[in-house]
């Protein structure tokens, strides 16, 4: 599903040049649950943004669903993104001015669904995330765990093939964190591919394998499956 070859990202600000990703090559198959780990600043979020088609690499190739997309325009990326990828962020990134229902509805609006279809799908997703009773509330009226469940609902509402989660439990206590992890595991079991950045070894346990980054490079690929099988 995903394959990168010598993926490199260099940030230039004024005089300083940061190599956030240095020749990263790896592969994710459909249905996999991959955890990305590494110290702060090693390039995890940068990698996820590129995989999520939010950003272009400076160098290297990126194959998404068989297309080489590193040279895609913003418009092409946006189209590919909205049809295939859902995002979950550490800081939830919900829109404060919209209520729960409207937040979850957003991806469907941009996919051009009819209002009745949207209602059906949003309610199903909220049901699944057990937050349906709060659909009229605004994000600031919810706890962190509730907000993250809304964010996950938004990520899955359009039924994407891939979910990218950047430290989804980073702002949550362990009980709420576990809730979210269970939700992600459930989604993976139902066939959704998941790539998740995390600092927590416990969260990483939910994944099939762990990719470790250090200074923009992959240092180990612990393929849990190999041992598990």
């Amino acid at each position: 599903m995903i394959k990168t070859v010598n993926l490199t990202k260099v940030f230039r600000t004024d005089e300083v040049e940061t190599t956030a990703l240095n020749q990263v090559s790896f592969e994710v198959k459909e249905g996999e649950f991959v955890a990305v780990m590494g110290p702060s600043g090693c390039g995890k979020s940068t990698l996820l943004n590129i995989l999520g088609l939010l950003d272009n690499p400076t160098d290297g190739d990126y194959y998404f669903l068989g297309n080489e997309v590193s040279g895609f325009s913003e418009k092409q990326r946006a189209s590919l993104r909205k049809h295939n990828i859902g995002f979950v962020f550490q800081n939830f990134n919900l829109i404060d001015e919209l209520n729960v229902f409207e937040n979850v509805e957003l991806p469907l609006i941009y996919l051009g669904y009819k209002a009745s279809e949207r209602r059906e799908k949003v309610e199903a997703a909220l049901e699944q995330m057990q937050i349906i009773h709060r659909k009229k509330h605004f994000p600031l009226q919810l706890s962190g765990g509730q907000q993250q469940r809304v964010a996950v609902a938004r990520a899955v509402v359009a039924n994407p093939k891939l979910i990218l989660a950047d430290e989804p439990t980073g702002n949550l206590d362990s009980a709420h964190g576990e809730e979210v992890m269970n939700l992600l595991e459930q989604l993976n079991k139902n066939g959704t591919t998941i790539i998740m950045v995390t600092h927590s070894q416990r969260d990483a346990e939910y994944s099939h394998r762990i990719v470790r980054l250090f200074d923009g490079q992959i240092v180990t690929e612990n393929i849990k499956e190999q041992f598990a099988l």
């Binding site: 913003e74 990134n93 829109i95 941009y110 996919l111 938004r154």
Partner: peptide
Amino acid sequence: TKEIGIRKVMGATLGN
């Protein structure tokens, strides 16, 4: 700015 960013991630085009 934040809202715009989120909407773009969700698939909003520049026009939207």
